Deep mutational scan, measured.
Amino acid sequence: MDALKSAGRALIRSPSLAKQSWGGGGRHRKLPENWTDTRETLLEGMLFSLKYLGMTLVEQPKGEELSAAAIKRIVATAKASGKKLQKVTLKVSPRGIILTDNLTNQLIENVSIYRISYCTADKMHDKVFAYIAQSQHNQSLECHAFLCTKRKMAQAVTLTVAQAFKVAFEFWQVSKEEKEKRDKASQEGGDVLGARQDCTPPLKSLVATGNLLDLEETAKAPLSTVSANTTNMDEVPRPQALSGSSVVWELDDGLDEAFSRLAQSRTNPQVLDTGLTAQDMHYAQCLSPVDWDKPDSSGTEQDDLFSF
Protein backbone atom coordinates (compact mmCIF):
# COMPACT_ATOMS: atom_id res chain seq x y z
CA MET A 1 0.00 0.00 0.00
CA ASP A 2 2.95 2.33 0.48
CA ALA A 3 3.59 2.47 -3.24
CA LEU A 4 -0.05 3.33 -3.89
CA LYS A 5 -0.16 6.07 -1.27
CA SER A 6 3.13 7.64 -2.30
CA ALA A 7 2.04 7.58 -5.93
CA GLY A 8 -1.19 9.35 -5.06
CA ARG A 9 0.58 11.97 -2.96
CA ALA A 10 3.16 12.61 -5.66
CA LEU A 11 0.51 13.09 -8.32
CA ILE A 12 -1.49 15.48 -6.18
CA ARG A 13 1.66 17.50 -5.49
CA SER A 14 2.77 17.73 -9.09
CA PRO A 15 0.65 16.11 -11.82
CA SER A 16 2.90 17.64 -14.49
CA LEU A 17 5.72 15.28 -13.53
CA ALA A 18 4.01 12.44 -15.33
CA LYS A 19 4.24 14.21 -18.68
CA GLN A 20 8.03 14.02 -18.81
CA SER A 21 9.67 11.74 -21.34
CA TRP A 22 12.91 9.81 -21.09
CA GLY A 23 15.15 8.55 -23.83
CA GLY A 24 14.23 11.35 -26.19
CA GLY A 25 17.70 12.69 -26.84
CA GLY A 26 17.55 15.68 -24.52
CA ARG A 27 14.07 16.92 -25.44
CA HIS A 28 12.73 16.36 -21.96
CA ARG A 29 12.47 18.80 -19.08
CA LYS A 30 14.48 18.59 -15.88
CA LEU A 31 14.25 15.10 -14.48
CA PRO A 32 13.73 13.90 -10.91
CA GLU A 33 16.91 13.10 -9.03
CA ASN A 34 16.35 9.41 -8.37
CA TRP A 35 14.41 6.36 -9.43
CA THR A 36 11.99 6.55 -6.50
CA ASP A 37 10.79 9.98 -7.56
CA THR A 38 10.17 8.89 -11.15
CA ARG A 39 8.35 5.79 -9.96
CA GLU A 40 5.82 8.04 -8.24
CA THR A 41 4.68 9.49 -11.59
CA LEU A 42 3.22 6.17 -12.71
CA LEU A 43 -0.40 7.12 -12.12
CA GLU A 44 -0.68 9.33 -15.18
CA GLY A 45 2.02 7.48 -17.08
CA MET A 46 5.75 7.52 -17.70
CA LEU A 47 6.88 8.13 -21.28
CA PHE A 48 9.81 6.44 -22.99
CA SER A 49 11.07 7.20 -26.50
CA LEU A 50 12.10 3.90 -28.08
CA LYS A 51 12.32 2.19 -31.48
CA TYR A 52 9.89 -0.58 -32.33
CA LEU A 53 11.58 -3.76 -33.51
CA GLY A 54 8.48 -5.83 -34.12
CA MET A 55 6.31 -8.65 -32.81
CA THR A 56 6.21 -12.43 -32.94
CA LEU A 57 3.85 -15.03 -31.52
CA VAL A 58 4.93 -17.19 -28.58
CA GLU A 59 3.42 -20.31 -27.03
CA GLN A 60 3.88 -19.55 -23.33
CA PRO A 61 3.02 -16.43 -21.27
CA LYS A 62 6.47 -16.09 -19.69
CA GLY A 63 10.02 -17.40 -19.54
CA GLU A 64 13.54 -16.12 -20.08
CA GLU A 65 14.48 -18.68 -22.72
CA LEU A 66 11.14 -18.23 -24.44
CA SER A 67 11.51 -14.44 -24.64
CA ALA A 68 15.16 -14.67 -25.69
CA ALA A 69 14.24 -16.90 -28.64
CA ALA A 70 11.37 -14.59 -29.59
CA ILE A 71 13.59 -11.50 -29.45
CA LYS A 72 16.20 -13.26 -31.56
CA ARG A 73 13.56 -13.90 -34.24
CA ILE A 74 12.30 -10.32 -34.09
CA VAL A 75 15.80 -8.85 -34.39
CA ALA A 76 16.68 -11.15 -37.30
CA THR A 77 13.50 -10.16 -39.14
CA ALA A 78 14.11 -6.46 -38.53
CA LYS A 79 17.69 -6.69 -39.79
CA ALA A 80 16.65 -8.66 -42.87
CA SER A 81 14.06 -6.04 -43.81
CA GLY A 82 16.72 -3.32 -43.97
CA LYS A 83 14.12 -0.70 -43.00
CA LYS A 84 14.65 2.08 -40.49
CA LEU A 85 13.04 1.35 -37.18
CA GLN A 86 9.84 3.12 -36.26
CA LYS A 87 10.31 5.69 -33.50
CA VAL A 88 7.63 5.29 -30.88
CA THR A 89 6.58 6.55 -27.47
CA LEU A 90 5.80 3.99 -24.82
CA LYS A 91 3.47 5.25 -22.09
CA VAL A 92 3.51 3.03 -19.01
CA SER A 93 0.91 3.36 -16.25
CA PRO A 94 -1.14 1.09 -13.96
CA ARG A 95 -3.69 0.97 -16.77
CA GLY A 96 -1.18 -0.66 -19.10
CA ILE A 97 1.02 0.24 -22.06
CA ILE A 98 0.05 2.72 -24.77
CA LEU A 99 2.21 2.71 -27.88
CA THR A 100 2.10 5.69 -30.27
CA ASP A 101 4.03 6.72 -33.38
CA ASN A 102 6.38 9.64 -32.69
CA LEU A 103 5.92 11.27 -36.10
CA THR A 104 2.17 10.93 -36.60
CA ASN A 105 1.13 10.58 -32.94
CA GLN A 106 -1.09 7.73 -34.14
CA LEU A 107 -2.06 5.00 -31.69
CA ILE A 108 -0.34 1.71 -32.48
CA GLU A 109 -1.27 -0.45 -29.51
CA ASN A 110 -3.13 -0.13 -26.22
CA VAL A 111 -2.43 -3.07 -23.91
CA SER A 112 -4.33 -3.40 -20.63
CA ILE A 113 -2.06 -4.13 -17.69
CA TYR A 114 -3.73 -7.45 -16.88
CA ARG A 115 -2.92 -8.78 -20.37
CA ILE A 116 0.83 -8.39 -19.76
CA SER A 117 2.35 -11.60 -18.40
CA TYR A 118 6.10 -10.95 -18.72
CA CYS A 119 8.64 -8.23 -19.49
CA THR A 120 12.41 -8.24 -19.74
CA ALA A 121 15.64 -6.54 -20.73
CA ASP A 122 17.23 -9.15 -23.00
CA LYS A 123 20.55 -10.68 -21.96
CA MET A 124 21.98 -11.20 -25.45
CA HIS A 125 20.67 -7.99 -26.99
CA ASP A 126 21.06 -5.92 -23.86
CA LYS A 127 19.53 -2.74 -25.32
CA VAL A 128 16.27 -4.51 -26.10
CA PHE A 129 13.17 -4.29 -23.92
CA ALA A 130 10.35 -6.74 -24.58
CA TYR A 131 7.03 -7.75 -23.11
CA ILE A 132 4.65 -10.66 -23.64
CA ALA A 133 0.92 -9.98 -23.67
CA GLN A 134 -2.29 -11.67 -24.70
CA SER A 135 -3.80 -10.26 -27.88
CA GLN A 136 -6.97 -8.24 -27.37
CA HIS A 137 -8.42 -9.80 -30.53
CA ASN A 138 -7.91 -13.47 -29.65
CA GLN A 139 -6.18 -15.75 -27.16
CA SER A 140 -2.77 -15.68 -28.87
CA LEU A 141 0.33 -14.52 -26.99
CA GLU A 142 2.50 -11.83 -28.57
CA CYS A 143 6.06 -10.78 -27.79
CA HIS A 144 6.76 -7.13 -28.66
CA ALA A 145 10.37 -5.88 -28.70
CA PHE A 146 11.86 -2.38 -28.62
CA LEU A 147 15.36 -1.01 -29.13
CA CYS A 148 16.49 1.35 -26.36
CA THR A 149 19.40 3.79 -26.41
CA LYS A 150 21.29 1.65 -23.91
CA ARG A 151 21.06 -1.23 -21.48
CA LYS A 152 20.18 1.10 -18.60
CA MET A 153 17.09 2.28 -20.48
CA ALA A 154 15.94 -1.27 -21.23
CA GLN A 155 16.22 -2.15 -17.54
CA ALA A 156 14.43 1.04 -16.52
CA VAL A 157 11.46 0.35 -18.81
CA THR A 158 11.28 -3.22 -17.51
CA LEU A 159 11.19 -2.06 -13.89
CA THR A 160 8.60 0.61 -14.72
CA VAL A 161 6.23 -1.93 -16.25
CA ALA A 162 6.72 -4.26 -13.27
CA GLN A 163 6.02 -1.41 -10.85
CA ALA A 164 2.92 -0.36 -12.82
CA PHE A 165 1.63 -3.92 -12.56
CA LYS A 166 2.20 -3.89 -8.80
CA VAL A 167 0.37 -0.58 -8.35
CA ALA A 168 -2.52 -1.83 -10.50
CA PHE A 169 -2.82 -4.93 -8.34
CA GLU A 170 -2.88 -2.75 -5.22
CA PHE A 171 -5.62 -0.62 -6.78
CA TRP A 172 -7.60 -3.77 -7.40
CA GLN A 173 -7.15 -4.90 -3.80
CA VAL A 174 -8.33 -1.53 -2.46
CA SER A 175 -11.30 -1.47 -4.83
CA LYS A 176 -12.26 -5.00 -3.88
CA GLU A 177 -12.14 -4.17 -0.16
CA GLU A 178 -14.17 -1.00 -0.66
CA LYS A 179 -16.80 -2.85 -2.67
CA GLU A 180 -17.09 -5.52 0.03
CA LYS A 181 -17.57 -2.80 2.67
CA ARG A 182 -20.24 -1.07 0.59
CA ASP A 183 -22.06 -4.34 -0.09
CA LYS A 184 -22.02 -5.16 3.62
CA ALA A 185 -23.24 -1.68 4.58
CA SER A 186 -25.98 -1.90 1.98
CA GLN A 187 -27.10 -5.28 3.27
CA GLU A 188 -27.12 -4.10 6.88
CA GLY A 189 -29.03 -0.98 5.88
CA GLY A 190 -31.56 -3.10 4.01
CA ASP A 191 -32.05 -5.32 7.07
CA VAL A 192 -32.68 -2.26 9.27
CA LEU A 193 -35.16 -0.87 6.77
CA GLY A 194 -36.97 -4.22 6.55
CA ALA A 195 -37.19 -4.44 10.34
CA ARG A 196 -38.70 -0.95 10.56
CA GLN A 197 -41.26 -1.83 7.92
CA ASP A 198 -42.21 -5.04 9.76
CA CYS A 199 -42.85 -3.21 13.00
CA THR A 200 -44.80 -0.32 11.41
CA PRO A 201 -48.59 -0.60 11.96
CA PRO A 202 -50.72 -0.88 8.82
CA LEU A 203 -51.86 2.47 7.43
CA LYS A 204 -55.52 1.41 7.75
CA SER A 205 -55.23 0.95 11.52
CA LEU A 206 -53.61 4.37 11.85
CA VAL A 207 -56.49 5.97 10.04
CA ALA A 208 -59.05 4.02 12.04
CA THR A 209 -57.67 5.13 15.39
CA GLY A 210 -57.08 8.68 14.26
CA ASN A 211 -53.31 8.55 14.92
CA LEU A 212 -50.93 10.67 12.80
CA LEU A 213 -47.80 9.35 11.08
CA ASP A 214 -44.67 10.57 12.86
CA LEU A 215 -42.75 12.07 9.95
CA GLU A 216 -39.97 13.26 12.25
CA GLU A 217 -39.18 9.71 13.37
CA THR A 218 -39.28 8.53 9.77
CA ALA A 219 -36.75 11.20 8.87
CA LYS A 220 -34.44 9.94 11.61
CA ALA A 221 -34.47 6.40 10.22
CA PRO A 222 -31.26 5.27 8.47
CA LEU A 223 -32.81 5.62 5.01
CA SER A 224 -30.20 8.14 3.92
CA THR A 225 -27.46 5.64 4.69
CA VAL A 226 -29.20 2.99 2.65
CA SER A 227 -29.72 5.28 -0.33
CA ALA A 228 -26.14 6.50 -0.15
CA ASN A 229 -24.91 2.95 -0.45
CA THR A 230 -27.40 1.80 -3.06
CA THR A 231 -27.60 4.80 -5.35
CA ASN A 232 -24.06 4.33 -6.64
CA MET A 233 -23.80 0.56 -6.40
CA ASP A 234 -22.96 0.35 -10.11
CA GLU A 235 -20.15 2.85 -9.75
CA VAL A 236 -16.71 1.28 -9.43
CA PRO A 237 -15.13 2.10 -6.06
CA ARG A 238 -11.96 4.17 -6.14
CA PRO A 239 -9.00 4.05 -3.78
CA GLN A 240 -9.24 6.62 -1.02
CA ALA A 241 -5.61 7.56 -1.48
CA LEU A 242 -6.55 9.28 -4.75
CA SER A 243 -9.46 11.39 -3.50
CA GLY A 244 -9.05 14.94 -4.74
CA SER A 245 -6.60 14.01 -7.49
CA SER A 246 -7.13 14.27 -11.22
CA VAL A 247 -6.84 10.53 -11.75
CA VAL A 248 -9.96 8.48 -12.36
CA TRP A 249 -9.36 4.78 -11.82
CA GLU A 250 -11.87 2.34 -13.21
CA LEU A 251 -11.60 -1.44 -13.00
CA ASP A 252 -13.18 -3.35 -15.84
CA ASP A 253 -14.45 -6.91 -15.63
CA GLY A 254 -11.40 -8.30 -17.40
CA LEU A 255 -8.98 -6.83 -14.88
CA ASP A 256 -11.10 -7.97 -11.95
CA GLU A 257 -11.27 -11.52 -13.29
CA ALA A 258 -7.56 -11.67 -14.17
CA PHE A 259 -6.35 -10.36 -10.81
CA SER A 260 -8.78 -12.63 -8.98
CA ARG A 261 -7.21 -15.62 -10.73
CA LEU A 262 -3.72 -14.37 -9.89
CA ALA A 263 -4.62 -13.90 -6.23
CA GLN A 264 -5.77 -17.53 -6.05
CA SER A 265 -2.99 -19.16 -8.06
CA ARG A 266 0.20 -17.33 -7.05
CA THR A 267 2.03 -16.68 -3.80
CA ASN A 268 3.01 -13.15 -4.89
CA PRO A 269 0.33 -12.21 -7.43
CA GLN A 270 1.29 -8.53 -7.35
CA VAL A 271 4.74 -9.26 -8.82
CA LEU A 272 5.09 -9.32 -12.60
CA ASP A 273 7.69 -11.80 -13.80
CA THR A 274 10.73 -10.16 -15.39
CA GLY A 275 14.01 -11.44 -16.75
CA LEU A 276 16.02 -9.17 -14.45
CA THR A 277 18.32 -10.57 -11.81
CA ALA A 278 18.39 -9.13 -8.29
CA GLN A 279 21.66 -7.41 -9.19
CA ASP A 280 20.12 -5.88 -12.32
CA MET A 281 17.15 -4.58 -10.36
CA HIS A 282 19.32 -3.08 -7.64
CA TYR A 283 21.52 -1.40 -10.25
CA ALA A 284 18.59 0.04 -12.18
CA GLN A 285 16.81 1.27 -9.04
CA CYS A 286 19.93 3.20 -8.04
CA LEU A 287 20.02 5.04 -11.36
CA SER A 288 18.77 8.54 -11.96
CA PRO A 289 16.82 9.04 -15.20
CA VAL A 290 19.61 11.45 -16.13
CA ASP A 291 21.92 8.42 -16.23
CA TRP A 292 19.70 6.77 -18.82
CA ASP A 293 20.75 9.35 -21.39
CA LYS A 294 24.48 9.11 -20.67
CA PRO A 295 26.49 7.21 -23.30
CA ASP A 296 27.59 3.72 -22.35
CA SER A 297 31.22 3.39 -21.36
CA SER A 298 31.64 0.76 -24.08
CA GLY A 299 31.70 3.37 -26.82
CA THR A 300 29.72 5.80 -28.93
CA GLU A 301 26.01 5.20 -29.17
CA GLN A 302 24.78 4.45 -32.68
CA ASP A 303 21.26 5.35 -33.65
CA ASP A 304 20.84 2.17 -35.66
CA LEU A 305 19.51 -1.36 -35.32
CA PHE A 306 22.80 -2.87 -36.48
CA SER A 307 24.76 -1.36 -33.59
CA PHE A 308 24.17 -4.42 -31.39
Rank of each mutant, 00 (worst) to 15 (best):
K176G: 05
Y52T: 07
A78Y: 12
A133N: 09
A154E: 00
Q240M: 14
K179T: 14
G45R: 10
A130Q: 00
T231I: 14
V157L: 14
G45Q: 09
V92S: 01
D303I: 06
G96T: 02
G190Y: 02
V248M: 09
L53M: 03
A164T: 06
T274C: 03
E217I: 12
S6M: 15
F169E: 02
G82P: 01
E180A: 14
A195E: 10
N232V: 06
L66T: 03
T149F: 06
C119F: 01
L57C: 06
V226I: 12
D293S: 06
S243M: 05
N138M: 14
L206N: 05
S93V: 09
P222N: 04
L276R: 03
R182C: 13
L107A: 02
H137C: 13
V157D: 00
C148K: 00
K181Y: 14
N34K: 11
D122W: 00
P295M: 06
A156C: 11
M233N: 03
D198K: 06
E250Q: 13
G210N: 06
F48H: 04
S307A: 08
E40K: 13
A145C: 00
D126Y: 00
L57T: 14
N102F: 07
A145K: 00
L53V: 00
T89W: 10
N105A: 06
L31G: 14
Q106D: 01
A263F: 04
Q197P: 13
L141H: 15
K150Y: 09
L215M: 08
T231W: 02
H28N: 14
I71P: 00
I113M: 03
Q86V: 09
A185K: 06
C199V: 03
A70R: 01
T230P: 05
H137T: 10
E40S: 10
L251G: 06
Q240I: 11
K123G: 14
A76P: 03
T158D: 04
A10C: 12
P61S: 02
D252Y: 03
F146M: 00
R39A: 08
K5Q: 04
T158L: 02
T218W: 02
D214N: 09
Q106M: 08
E188G: 05
K79L: 02
S265P: 03
S260T: 04
D183A: 12
K5N: 07
P32C: 08
T160S: 15
T200L: 04
D303Y: 05
V247F: 15
C286T: 02
W249T: 14
T38Y: 03
T149V: 11
K51Q: 03
R29P: 15
G23I: 02
W22V: 02
S93M: 13
S265N: 11
L215K: 15
S21T: 07
G254D: 08
I97H: 01
Q163Y: 14
T218G: 14
L107R: 15
V192N: 05
Q264A: 07
S81F: 06
W172L: 02
L17T: 12
T274L: 02
E109Q: 05
K176T: 10
L305H: 07
Q270V: 06
E216K: 15
D234I: 04
D126N: 03
G210M: 09
K150G: 12
R39N: 03
D122C: 00
L66Y: 12
R13I: 14
I113A: 03
E301C: 07
L47C: 09
S16T: 06
L193E: 13
L141A: 13
F169S: 02
K294F: 12
V247L: 09
E170H: 04
A69K: 12
N138T: 15
A221Y: 04
K150H: 03
N110W: 14
T41Y: 05
P15Y: 06
H282A: 10
S135Q: 06
R73D: 13
Q163P: 00
I12L: 15
A168P: 04
V248R: 10
L212K: 10
G54Q: 00
W35G: 14
K30E: 13
K166S: 09
Y131I: 04
G210Q: 15
L193D: 05
P94W: 04
V111M: 15
E235L: 07
S67K: 01
Q264Y: 03
K220W: 02
K152L: 10
V92P: 01
S265A: 13
E217G: 06
C143E: 09
R73G: 09
Q60H: 15
T209M: 07
G96V: 12
K83E: 12
V174A: 01
